[in-house]
Amino acid sequence: MVFAHDVEVGLQAAVDLANTAQDPDSLTTPDDLADFYSRFSYSGRHDRTDEELAEIRGLRGRLDALLRADRDEAVVLVNEMLAEAQAVPQLVRHGDFDWHVHAVPAEAPLSTRILVETAMAMIDVIRIDEMSRLGVCADDDCDGIVLDLSRNRSRRFCSVTCGNRNAVAAYRARQSSS
């Protein structure tokens, strides 16, 4: 394992959220947000309203910029995010998760918690100089973000869909040249 579990989940959630802005947009209803909340085991306040959905959708650009930034740019963005939220790291335990770090209270808006949890996860990425774990999808028709947590750093596509599309294209190219 490269990162602690909470860091990996925070990074995966941030990448997933940023990639929902790809065409077609996959975060359009409060139910879509509820699925995201559940899939990534968020805890605390979740209003399930159109306003909350709009706030979360509004984060996607900031998360995308952070996840595509170089190391020095990422430091600036992380520090801004943490200062904006007046983050105070503290150890918490909830659900199936043992002690891990949260930096804003559970009552804070979900958009604030997502932003801060992403910033906290990025601290570890920056500190151990693992920015190369983040990249852009190798599919020529996709601009999605890839989080490569594999041991051999072999992940190239942001989703199974992009990977399958490229595998089929490569297969067809081999078949036509035979």
Rank of each mutant, 00 (worst) to 15 (best):
I145S: 01
R71T: 15
E130P: 04
F97E: 14
A54K: 06
C137D: 14
L115F: 11
E52T: 02
V78C: 05
G163K: 08
L77Y: 05
V116T: 09
S154H: 09
V76P: 00
R39Y: 00
A138M: 03
P105R: 11
R133I: 15
F97T: 02
L66I: 11
N152V: 10
G44W: 09
L63N: 04
I114C: 04
N152E: 15
P89F: 02
M81H: 08
F97R: 15
E51K: 03
R57Q: 15
A108N: 00
G95Y: 03
A74H: 01
T49R: 05
I123S: 11
D143A: 12
C158V: 12
L63F: 15
D64I: 10
D148I: 11
A74C: 08
H100F: 13
G44R: 04
G144C: 11
F97C: 05
L115W: 08
S159C: 13
L110V: 02
L134Y: 12
D141I: 03
A103R: 04
L66Y: 05
R45F: 08
F40A: 10
L147D: 04
D72L: 12
D141E: 14
W99I: 13
A119D: 06
G163D: 10
I126F: 12
H94K: 07
E117R: 15
D124N: 12
T161W: 00
F36T: 06
L66N: 06
D129F: 07
E84W: 11
C137Q: 07
I126E: 07
A87C: 06
D47N: 09
L110T: 03
F157A: 10
D70N: 03
V104M: 04
D64R: 15
D64Y: 14
E107P: 00
F157W: 12
L53A: 06
D64T: 15
R60W: 09
L53Y: 01
A121V: 02
L63A: 09
V88H: 03
I56T: 03
L82I: 09
T118A: 15
H46P: 00
R68F: 03
L110K: 07
C137H: 03
E51H: 07
A103E: 08
L77A: 12
A83I: 01
D35H: 07
L115E: 13
A108V: 02
E130N: 10
V104N: 01
L66Q: 10
S132K: 11
D98K: 10
Q90Y: 12
R127C: 06
A119G: 06
S132G: 14
V160D: 13
C158E: 07
A69I: 09
M122G: 01
P109N: 12
R155S: 04
V116I: 07
A119V: 06
A119F: 14
L59G: 00
G163T: 00
L149S: 07
T161Q: 08
I128A: 05
E84G: 01
L110M: 14
S43G: 11
V78D: 02
V78S: 00
D148C: 09
A74W: 02
E51F: 01
E107Y: 05
A69M: 14
P105V: 09
V75G: 15
V101Y: 12
G58L: 04
S38W: 12
